[in-house]
């Protein structure tokens, strides 16, 4: 799996989608994220890498305010989506999460039919006017999730009956069904076998055309394969952020180099 199967495409990477400035995150007394500044580009795959417990998942969860569900978690600093501060008092996290979708580490389809899994988001956001609309959204999302061909004959079978890789693609399809602008992925392939991983990675590369994708991964090869930008986190600090090729071939910080070459981590 070390070869770079994904052919790089030229995309416009100039627009900043999410801009974080001086972000601090505390879990009770623990200072989990220390003063992180990062600019995430539109229509780009940005990878967060780093050793376990370095705060990359925590930071990812700040981007759609999933940390709000944790009582002891406190976020300081500024995170802007298209220039709007998402931690502003006027922001409803529910609306934010419709714009910033999320895929989790473990595939977590609802214990409902495949169809209902996809249709749930559009239903609660009122994206479909009628049944035909909804059918269309479901088909489109499943196609975008690269799983349509496998499930089109059993849309009303339970989503939990699929294999792990299929479930994860179903979850990605579910996340894109609400037409988000940013897609956050928290180690989406860590529970998958290499073949399913490859399918998901190809999918991520396709999703780049429509979304800004942020992916947290433990696998440096994966980061190198799918991302254009890479951020290296260590002990709650953002050590280095830059073009993926530069990070992997010519890291500026020696901690990055140590991690990439396997000396720390």
């Amino acid at each position: 799996m070390n070869d770079m199967r994904i052919v790089r495409k030229d995309v416009d990477m100039n627009d900043t989608k999410i801009s974080a400035k001086g972000v601090q995150v505390y879990y009770g007394d623990t200072h989990a994220i220390k003063d992180v500044d990062v600019e995430i580009k539109d229509k780009t795959v940005t990878a967060f890498i780093g050793p376990s417990g370095c705060g990359k998942s925590t930071f990812l969860r700040c981007l759609n305010r999933m940390n709000d569900t944790i009582d002891i978690c406190r976020v300081e600093g500024k995170i802007e989506l298209d220039g709007e501060d998402i931690y502003d008092k006027r922001v409803d996290p529910v609306q934010l999460r419709a714009k910033v979708g999320m895929v989790f580490q473990k595939p977590n389809p609802f214990p409902k039919s495949i169809y209902d899994n996809i249709a749930y988001g559009p239903r609660i956001h009122g994206l479909a006017k009628n049944k035909a609309d909804l059918d269309e959204i479901v088909e489109k999302s499943l196609r975008r999730g690269a799983i349509w061909d496998e499930v089109k004959d059993r849309l009303h079978a339970p989503g939990t009956g699929l294999s792990g890789g299929q479930q994860q693609r179903l979850c990605i399809a579910r996340a894109v069904a609400t037409e988000p602008e940013v897609l956050l992925m928290d180690e989406p392939c860590s529970a998958l076998d290499p073949i399913a991983t490859l399918q998901v990675e190809e999918l991520i590369d396709e999703l780049r055309e429509n979304f800004s994708v942020v992916i947290v991964t433990h696998s440096m090869q994966q980061a190198a394969r799918v991302s254009q930008k890479t951020a290296f986190f260590h002990l709650g600090n953002l050590v280095e952020y830059g073009d993926t090729e530069q990070i992997f071939t010519n890291p500026k910080d020696e901690r990055t180099e140590s991690y990439i070459t396997g000396r720390i981590g």
């Binding site: 999933m66 529910v94 999460r97 999320m102 989790f104 977590n108 609802f110 749930y120 988001g121």
Partner: peptide, 14 residues
């Protein structure tokens, strides 16, 4: 499982 809550919140459910 908390993953179900995450999944629902993740697609923008209140």
């Amino acid at each position: 499982p908390p993953s179900i809550r995450d999944a629902a919140l993740g697609v923008g459910a209140s």
